[in-house]
């Protein structure tokens, strides 16, 4: 059985920015056997945790998109020069590979469309709809092996640099 870790991150006090956390919480409700974290930000010790999973799915809010984006991450992608304690999913993947000599077979980043970042706990209707959309799609990938998930995601690639599953909503 594929060991799957879901990590949703963002700030639930800044409106749509909390989309990742909410999505991870929804998946935890629907799939209690999975390990799901809802976090404000990504911190280095997650690399150690990731090293024992087959599949890791990051979920974050994203500005400037209308539909879900579902990337397959590779270590060289998204790596930054960390200026603080917070890391990107690509950073974490890099840390996992280099420090713990064992990386998940598949690491994915799901971007949920977000547009309102005021000081509130409410999310926009569109973002909430996209969260539910993603949660449903995620369920379809649950029983697949990591390689099959890659196939499913890559089957929807719209360009060579970015793997995308178009939203079924809208």
């Amino acid at each position: 059985m594929t060991r799957t870790l879901v990590i949703g991150f963002g700030n639930t006090l800044r409106g749509d920015d909390g989309a990742g956390q909410l999505a991870a919480a929804r998946i935890a409700e629907l799939h209690p056997d999975l390990t799901c974290f809802s976090l404000v930000e990504l911190t280095p010790e997650l690399a150690d945790t990731m090293s024992v999973y087959d599949r890791v799915v990051f979920i974050d809010a994203s500005v400037g998109i209308e539909t879900l984006r579902w990337h397959v991450l590779r270590p060289s992608v998204e790596r930054t020069q960390p200026r603080s304690h917070a890391l990107t999913p690509g950073d974490l993947l890099q840390l996992t590979i280099e420090l713990f000599n064992s990386a998940p077979q598949q690491v994915e980043l799901v971007e949920i469309p977000a547009s309102q970042f005021g000081f509130c706990e409410e999310m926009s209707i569109h973002t909430r709809s996209m969260i539910e959309n993603f949660v449903g799609l995620f369920g379809e990938t649950m029983d697949l092996h990591a390689g099959d998930v890659a196939y499913l995601v890559s089957a929807h690639v719209s360009d060579s640099s970015q793997s995308v599953i178009p939203s079924t909503a809208n």
């Binding site: 010790e45 790596r79 020069q81 960390p82 200026r83 890099q94 840390l95 280099e98 420090l99 713990f100």
Partner: peptide
């Protein structure tokens, strides 16, 4: 940064994490 450290001080940074 932490990535630069990994090149020469892998055990140190792994232990810290």
């Amino acid at each position: 940064n932490v990535f630069g450290l990994m090149e020469e001080h892998k055990d140190f940074i792994r232990r810290g994490i």
